[in-house]
Each structure stands twice: as C-alpha cells, then as structure tokens.
Amino acid sequence: MEDYKYLFKVVLIGNAGVGKTCLVRRFTQGLFPPGQGATIGVDFMISTVEIDGVKVKLQIWDTAGQERFRSITQSYYRSANALILVYDISCQPSFDCLPQWINEMDMYASTKVITYLVGNKSDRVNQREIPAHIAERFAQQQDMRFLETSAKEADNVKRLFLEIAKELTQQARDNEICSQYSSASDLGATDTSPVGNFSCCKGF
C-alpha cells in the first residue's frame, strides 16, 4: 500500500466560491461536480502521481474559504510543502483579497513553501474581470508561480498539480544529496551546526 517515495502536503486557499473544491475534485476524481456546496472546515484527499518513474503521494488539503473557518485553515499552512492561492478571474473581489491571503501566508507558512497563484474559471471568457497579464505581474511581484485554470473545462488542472509534484520531488532530491554531503563532512568536524528544523518532506 505505502509504496511511495515521497509524500507532500498541498494546501489550497482563497476566497469562498472561487472553485478550490472543484479544482481538487477535477484532479483527483476527474469530474466537475454539479451544485458543489461550500466546504465546511477542511477536506482531505490523497492522490498518487508518478514523476520520472517515482511514486509521489500528494496529500491535498482543501480549505474552506468562508471567514469563520479561518483559524482552522490557518493551522495547516505551516506543514504545507505547497500552497495554492486561488482567485476567480470573473470576480474582482476575489482578486482584491489576495494581499490579505498573502499576509496570512507570510505569517504562518514555512519559508521554504512553494506558492502558486491560480486564476480559476478561465472558461468564463465573457465575464472575465481580471486580465491575465495583471495577475501575472502581481504573481511575479509576490514571487509566486502563476497559472490560469478551469475546473469546468479541465484546463491546466492536471498541469498545476503535476508541476507542483515535480518541483517538490526535485527539491527533495536536492535535499537528499545535500544532507548526504553534509553528513559525510560531519565526520570529524568539531562544531556541527544543527540541521534546519524545516519539516522533512520524505515519506514517513
């Protein structure tokens, strides 16, 4: 059962109704759920993908966007390996709230976390309120990767999660090499500095 090499935590955040749950269900179950109700608290899903022949398990935490769940959802930031901040390209307020979300991320998330800005509902071309280039520039300023998706049309959804899995796997491999190197050089060294306490990403 537990035949995976790495386990990563991916946490989705963003205003209520921007389509976080739909993105997750599109990716994990390959469907677009009709009449998706608002998420209560946090939902949890597992998906295993293969990156360069290595099994990688993604633990996806889909948080509720409604304000009253904020203190619950915040508790998941710290152990996240990747954070996906979602807004709705056809809803200006969901874009206007981004600085608030980024503020929260700065406060709670680990410094090593990979962050993605995702503009969802790209199928709603006629109702678009946020031009892609504006969002892209914003993402650049915030040092985030950017992607527009449509959970409805299955556009870029797989790509989003696979890119994340790939990047995290690469990071984990680099860490392994790094720690092998440092443990080798530890032998005989007189003052060893502590290894960073950042949560290890390796499967446990």
């Binding site: 209560i40 769940f69 619950i72 998941y76 710290r78 152990s79």
Partner: peptide, 11 residues
C-alpha cells in the same frame, strides 16, 4: 476540525 487544528498547532 477543531481537534485537527489543535494538533497542528501543537506540532
């Protein structure tokens, strides 16, 4: 959800 959140905070 409350329990999970507190477990996270405890960590």
């Amino acid at each position: 959800d409350g329990v999970c959140a507190m477990l996270n905070h405890a960590c």
